[in-house]
Design a protein around this nucleic acid. Structure first.
Lengths: 207, 207
DNA sequence: GTCTATAATTCGATAGAC
DNA sequence: GTCTATCGAATTATAGAC
């Protein structure tokens, strides 16, 4: 985090290729198999080096995951976007990332690891708090529900591969799904039938 | 699947307790740690028996998972529900299940395992095709997107535990999220601003 | 029916030669 | 900087005693 030595900027010459190859292979394997399902040896074989090199460069499997989870969602600025186009822009942005990256995208890697690994889940929370919520510029609850819908889409289309969702073309998803995200972003209490802003006292009836 | 011997119906006397205890412990562990993160020995210890018994009763870890994945979503009948209350009923139904079961619910177990285990993913697809799609009584695409929204909610609230989603009370989620599901269930081509039913030719511009 | 003992792998991690 | 060799622990699964 502190300022690096100035004279070291152009020094990146040796073995950075190996380091990058390890990280790229690690991202592929973590994204495909999750943390527990990935082995250091498989990553090393994929990178074309010995598995002891992975330990030498990254210290441990957990630290390698930590390096692989350095994800930038690269969200587009939405402040200049009219309210009724934000949802559409969001869905198109993520679909574009995922379709052109398949299993390699950072968010899918994050998701696959986060479901069973607490360290990755913590990173997911940090990333959404630091990137999604501010970009949406709305209250936390709406940002959370929008994230819910976007992560749900990644889940069913790329991880679970539910056939009906996989079969849809990107523009079909935008047309059918963006309005739902738009609905969450709308101000609440639109109560057409008179639903109370304060929910009914405590009628948690059992179905 | 074939009819069992008739005289065997009341015969369930011995060691069925052990068998059930193993299955219950297996569900807890698979739900909490996924397939790869769960060990036969931990399940056996939880059930208070030796790990060799698990093998004796279920043959292998994969077959034990298969038994644990026998999930009934127990969806309510929606055919008698007016269109504009279906989304609300769905969200309330699943929240009720999850809130009263925490990590023990079958759908959360299914989800946690399916993300990294292909056998569980296949079961997830089967369960949604057999239970959710028919219950919604709509076209496959809408059923798929509603499943996306419901699974997304389970994901962010119970598995990833995104703070803003965790903090919401069930009735707040119903009020804020059901309208979004209702939007997906609406007939399309409502095009208020004249969005073409056929998407623009091929303008997949890069953000 | 239940448990002990063990086989056969595989993993993450370390030490050291070149 | 890279690889060989190996350790110690943990895993699934099997065989057999009681």
């Amino acid at each position: 985090m502190a300022a690096p030595e100035p004279a070291q900027a152009p020094a990146a010459r040796r073995s950075d290729h190996t380091r990058a190859a390890i990280l790229a292979a690690a991202r592929r394997h973590f994204a495909a198999y999750g943390f527990e399902g990935t082995t250091i040896r498989a990553i090393a074989a994929d990178a074309g080096i010995d598995h002891s090199m992975v330990m030498r460069y990254y210290g441990s499997k957990a630290r390698l995951l930590d390096a692989a989870l350095d994800i930038d969602l690269d969200l587009p600025g939405l402040s200049a976007t009219p309210d009724d186009r934000r949802a559409e822009l969001l869905v198109r942005h993520f679909l574009h990332r995922w379709e052109h990256n398949a299993a390699g995208d950072g968010l899918l890697l994050l998701l696959r690891s986060a479901v069973t690994h607490e360290q990755a889940a913590q990173r997911t929370r940090e990333i959404f708090a630091a990137q999604v919520a501010p970009a949406l510029n709305t209250d936390p609850e709406k940002a959370g529900l929008v994230s819910t819908q976007l992560l749900g889409l990644a889940l069913t289309r790329y991880l679970l591969r539910i056939p009906a969702v996989v079969a849809m073309r990107p523009e079909e998803i935008v047309a059918a799904y963006a309005p739902a995200i738009h609905t969450v972003l709308q101000p609440p209490a639109r109560t057409p039938q008179g639903l109370p802003p304060h929910p009914a006292p405590a009628t948690t009836q059992t179905p």
